[in-house]
């Protein structure tokens, strides 16, 4: 079955109030082209679920379309704190629920395994248990030991970006995998963008790098440079210059309006032109 869709056709399926888990990790392989399409779609009251979040969470918060964020981390790594995230956290504008890296994975895994929770020792004797009201502590019925019960996370949608995909929805990930496989399996509907659509025969040559299986995907779109301004190993690195401009814009209302108009409310091809065009991107970011 051919699952090739435009980003717009994918977003037509996402309603207001949807919960969406997003793959990638901080400045690596975030599905930014799909996230920008989501940001300009007019959808609102979204719940975001991320393990290690970065520009994707920050952009959607900056557009005011988010009502809740489940996260273990949101930041710009070497670049510093995420400006819209910081403002929203400090202003208590939306609901934040702090999880941890493994517990986000465990919550998605519980959904996949069709169990209500998974037990872990992670987080014991920390304040995460005090501020995260989704968790419960429980007693191990065998040993009496104290454990944390991590509830299943059931995302309506997953958005991920991969290196190559075929039109049936298999996806190849060549750099670090992050938690994309868990996102794709746990979500009811998974939409995947890729650097390049390839024929099924070519895709199957990648063996175990075919990490996203088509039984979990409902839509695939070819979006070259679709992770920009985050990186997509082993092809291109994160665009720290663009992220610097983004951060400056996010801290100035006038500049932020301009950034939205020129970088978010444009379709992907125009976006690539705005950031200098493909040749320019190759020379600055290709590794």
């Amino acid at each position: 079955m051919n699952k090739v869709l435009t980003a717009e056709a994918m977003l037509d399926q996402i309603p207001d109030g949807a919960s969406i888990t997003i793959g990638g990790s901080s400045l690596s392989r975030k599905p930014m082209a799909l996230v920008r399409a989501l940001a300009r779609s007019g959808r609102k009251d979204l719940t975001l679920i991320v393990n290690v979040g970065g520009p994707e969470v920050d952009l959607l918060l900056g557009l005011g379309v988010v009502s809740k964020v489940i996260y273990a981390f949101v930041g710009f790594e070497v670049m510093g704190l995420a400006p819209n995230f910081r403002r929203a956290r400090q202003g208590q504008i939306v609901e934040f629920e702090e999880w941890t890296e493994y517990t986000v994975m465990a919550g998605l895994d519980a959904a996949i395994k069709r169990v209500p929770f998974l037990p872990t020792r992670s987080g014991l004797a920390t304040d995460v248990l005090k501020v995260n009201h989704a968790f419960r502590t429980m007693t191990d019925p065998f040993t009496g030991q104290q454990l944390v019960a991590v509830p299943a996370i059931h995302p309506d949608f997953a958005l991920i970006h991969v290196n190559y995909a075929d039109e049936r929805g298999n996806g190849v990930i060549l750099g670090d995998g992050h938690i994309d496989v868990l996102c794709a399996k746990a979500a009811k509907t998974t939409f995947m963008s890729c650097e390049r659509l390839v024929h099924a025969d070519e895709l199957q040559r990648f063996g175990r790098d075919v990490q996203i299986l088509r039984i979990h995907t409902q839509g695939v779109a070819e979006m070259p440079w679709g992770a920009h301004p985050t990186g997509c190993a082993p092809e291109y690195r994160a665009d720290l210059k663009h992220l610097e401009e983004y951060m400056a814009a996010a801290n100035d209302p006038a500049k932020w309006a301009v950034y939205q108009d020129s970088m978010v409310f444009v379709e992907h091809g125009q976006y690539l032109d705005r950031i200098g065009g493909r040749e320019h991107l190759v020379s600055r970011l290709h590794v």
């Binding site: 273990a72 995420a82 995230f85 941890t100 992670s122 004797a125 501020v131």
Partner: peptide, 21 residues
């Protein structure tokens, strides 16, 4: 305070896993 931070940092990431194990 976490609920009303003066400066919101990044979130606990994987540190709870490290200190639990």
């Amino acid at each position: 305070p976490w609920e009303k931070p003066k400066v919101a940092l990044v979130g606990s990431r994987g540190i709870p896993e490290d200190t639990s194990h």
